[in-house]
Nucleic acid binder design. Sequence first.
DNA 1: AAAAAAC
Length: 502
Amino acid sequence: MPETPITIEADSAPTVKFADFGLAPEILRALTDQGYIHPTPIQAAAIPIVLQGRDVMGAAQTGTGKTASFSLPIIQLLLAHANPSMSPARHPVRALVLTPTRELAVQVAENVKAYAQHTPLRSTVVFGGMDMKGQTVILKGGVEIVIATPGRLLDHIEQKNVSLGQVQMLVMDEADRMLDMGFLPDLQRIINLLPKKRQNLMFSATFSPEIKKLANSFLTDPATIEVARSNATADKVTQIVYKVADEAKRDVVEFLIRGRDLKQVLVFSNTKIGASRLSRHLEQGGIKATAIHGDKTQQERMAALDAFKKGEIDVLVATDVAARGLDISDLPCVINFDLPYNAEDYVHRIGRTGRAGASGDALSVFSDKDERLLVDIEKLIKQTITRGELAGFVASSGSSGSGARGEAGGERRPRRDEGAGGARSSGRAPERERGGERSFGAERGAASGRSGPYPRREKVDPWFLTPYEPAKKSAPVAVEQVGASAKPKQKIAVLLGGSPKQ
DNA sequence: AAAAAAC
């Protein structure tokens, strides 16, 4: 496939204004209401293309302004083309946005609502975990734009609360994530209910082979827009990893949080139980913390997110439900209580910090048995992460086996944190009862020699073998953004081998 | 091995 990459220089973007796109005055008003004048690079690239009615395959992470890049032109197009439907009251849904998680759906819906506030267009969000009734009333009342998670949408469809026969535009947000989560069959079912003639926009963090297949099935002659990964791993984020014994991770994370004056910290755990336990542990230590994960009720999830955003709590302990998409931005610090099994997720997680020009710290604790994960991560981000040492702690290497050098025999090295340039995290040691240095060795018989290889995850979905509708070919437009601000010289390839290759 | 998502 011959591509003609168009490179957009980062500093060229601000010269364009939203006002240059020919958007309706109502939309521009909503934008100026919120102080938006200049589009981000992906917006500058995508908006004109979407306005042309073309399908788009966009690779962009959260924080790049992705949501506006599809919502603004959608609103514009819906405004411009009067509803051709004979009975607008019965089948008014004309644009459908699908997202993998409920929180992301809510967030996208909030944006759409804000952008469309001065227009007559109605929008709503439907997702699981909540009572069907309220959603049903709104759907039946008629809305032009629906933002939904797939499962609940299908539920509404089955109950005939909504009909999608008039949908002109479909957006699949975080498509890669939807695949990961096994939403393919649901997507297929939903798409089969849509008119054949429609505009499709698909966004994904990467262009994996699976995503390309999905694009081939669902998109027609798509323009390809690729934006550099967020600068998460660039200079602005100080990354440090601390190697500690497994049982010590909890205390080390607490130590790190305290060392940061309890400023808003997002902590990631690989498991729901781990997230709950850690949050409870922190609370017991007097830290205002809450957990967010899939076993919490939707009310709890929303309350937790809300409280964190408002600053009512200082620490949010999350599973990967919060790794992507969520607009928890500009955090000063993200901590990985566990290294993610999926190296990609590391990038997503730490992308919560150091955004929009701010600097940030991404700290991770790991133990022997996770060495392999760290290797994968460093390979992906193409850099070696600083090994940090903690003042007052001895990070035992507890080499597999028994690693008997605990506090008793082990040499103590109460080091001032020195490496880790700019590691403000070293801060002061907590003044709690623990007093001086502690040794987190393998005294409890850590990691008993288990170090098998980590199986690679590979999911093959047979459904892929039957393309929904063969896509026609033509020269796709490829747009690349050079790493914003930092070093204009280094191109995308450097930013996270997310596989820009073909 | 884990997470997410419909009831």
